[in-house]
Design a protein around this nucleic acid. Structure first.
Length: 413
DNA sequence: TGTCCACTGGAAGGGAGGGCTT
DNA sequence: AAGCCCTCCCTTCCAGTGGACA
């Protein structure tokens, strides 16, 4: 084959996408279908900023992929735009607390928004926190008007660093003369305010907006809108969008998942050189997304958890069904020796099993076997061969992967 | 009906490691 | 550099338990 031949075939296939970016998470569309209620609610709260008053702080709740971030950013941008037109100073700052997850970094990030020159910026580390806070106050005062701060995934911040940031931000208006600050917290954990100091809770939760999950029909509208922008005409078979919507609706109405499905289906179809995206591509995309998720989770597991998981896999491969904690632990202990790792106590392994259960890698339910005691019945919920292949990538586990266990070991295989 | 198994899962505390302050 | 504090991972200890079996 000539050197050109490698790409020739790929180049000859007609692309199905017009603009793939539209399907990515980072894209904020100009129109948000089925969210006009929430947009209006939020706008009604924030409109007082345009009148020079302090808007109430807001907490926004809703599961992943329900449009919280998109709505908050959209309204924030519109508000800033309206501020410009009416000559009111409105600053809008968006912070994702999964990335910026300490009090120091949040305050620094906000303050640096007001500081243009690099040399005056607050450094990543070094300053005492209250000095950063003082600088932030000074800068907000200098700028004047209303500063809207959006703290996305604020629950991550509170769980990692406590509610000090929220407490400080909720007090800041009392210390400002002309300027005003409004905080908008976004969380997908409905119960998370229980962990907050009551003063913070009452001050930041002045208004609450709930984002319900999308149902299948609403997801279809969203997909339709984005498909029009991202795919070429006639690139999708009629069944594709309803199927993506139905599958995502089963996953608690996650629009992000629906868009992922559509994008991955398109990628698979394109790679195969298909002229249209069909139902089969969506099914394959569904499997691929799920496998990618599992692979990623398993790959980043700590070694001890990997060994516990491997113990389960080897036992199930050997034909053992309905494993108990004791059985998994025995095998785990053997594998530790092979891998030359410390053997943890059974108590600790119980916790690791519970963690794997929570991650959806296995199913552990407590059962009683009467005379023969009470235990967890463990069943893996990931494909054995693929998961084992991921574990084998870890050099520490290579030898352990080929250890005969359970029935096999007894038969001397 | 009582016993007893094989655990479960809470509580408390040790110790390593990282980050911050002095 | 030293000291302090916090977090994470782990151990030890132990009371509690659903249900098969005698």
């Amino acid at each position: 084959m000539s050197r050109n031949g490698l790409f020739e075939a790929l180049l000859r296939t007609e692309p199905l996408f017009k603009n793939k970016e539209v399907l990515r998470h980072s894209y904020t569309p100009d129109e948000l279908p089925h969210r006009s209620d929430q947009i209006n609610q939020l706008a009604a709260i924030l409109v007082s900023a345009l009148r020079g008053e302090t808007p109430s702080n807001v907490f926004i709740y809703g599961k992943t992929g329900t449009g919280k971030t998109a709505v908050a950013r959209y309204v924030g941008k519109e508000l800033a735009k309206a501020g410009q037109e009416s000559n009111t100073t409105i600053t809008y700052i968006y912070i994702n607390c999964e990335v910026v997850d300490t009090q120091y970094r949040v305050l620094t990030q906000i303050a640096n928004n007001f500081i243009q020159s690099w040399s005056d910026r607050i450094p990543f580390t070094g300053w005492p926190t209250d000095e950063v806070y003082a600088k932030l106050r000074e800068k907000i005062e200098e700028k004047g008007g209303v500063t809207v701060i959006i703290l996305d995934e604020v629950d991550k911040l509170v769980f990692k660093s406590g509610d000090d940031v929220l407490y400080n931000l909720s007090r800041i208006n009392g210390e400002l003369k002309k300027a005003r600050v409004n905080v908008m917290g976004i969380s997908n954990d409905l119960k998370f305010t229980e962990f907050l100091d009551h003063r913070v809770r009452s001050s930041l939760g002045e208004e609450e907006i709930i984002f319900p999950p999308y149902d299948a029909r609403q997801l279809m509208d969203i997909l339709q809108q984005r498909a029009g922008m991202s795919f070429k005409d006639e690139a999708l078979e009629a069944a594709v969008i309803p199927l993506c919507a139905a599958l995502a609706a089963q996953e608690h109405g996650d629009a992000r998942r629906a868009l992922d499905l559509l994008r991955v289906s398109g990628e698979i179809a394109e790679r195969e050189g298909a002229r249209k995206v069909g139902e089969a591509h969506v099914r394959r995309a569904q499997n691929k997304i799920e496998l990618d998720r599992v692979t990623e989770v398993v790959r980043t597991l700590p070694t001890q958890s990997k060994l516990v998981l491997l113990a389960g896999i080897l036992r199930e491969e050997g034909g053992d069904k309905g494993l108990t904690t004791g059985e998994v632990y025995d095998t785990y202990a053997t594998l530790c020796q092979v891998a030359n790792m410390d053997v943890l106590t059974q108590r600790r392994v119980t916790d690791l099993l519970s963690e794997l259960d929570m991650m959806g890698i296995l199913n552990a339910r407590v059962i009683s076997k009467g005379r023969y005691g009470r235990t967890k019945e463990i069943q893996l919920s990931v494909p054995l061969a693929e998961t084992k292949a991921v574990l084998r990538e870890d050099p520490l586990l290579e030898a352990a992967c080929d250890t005969p266990v359970g029935k096999q070991a007894r038969l001397g295989i």
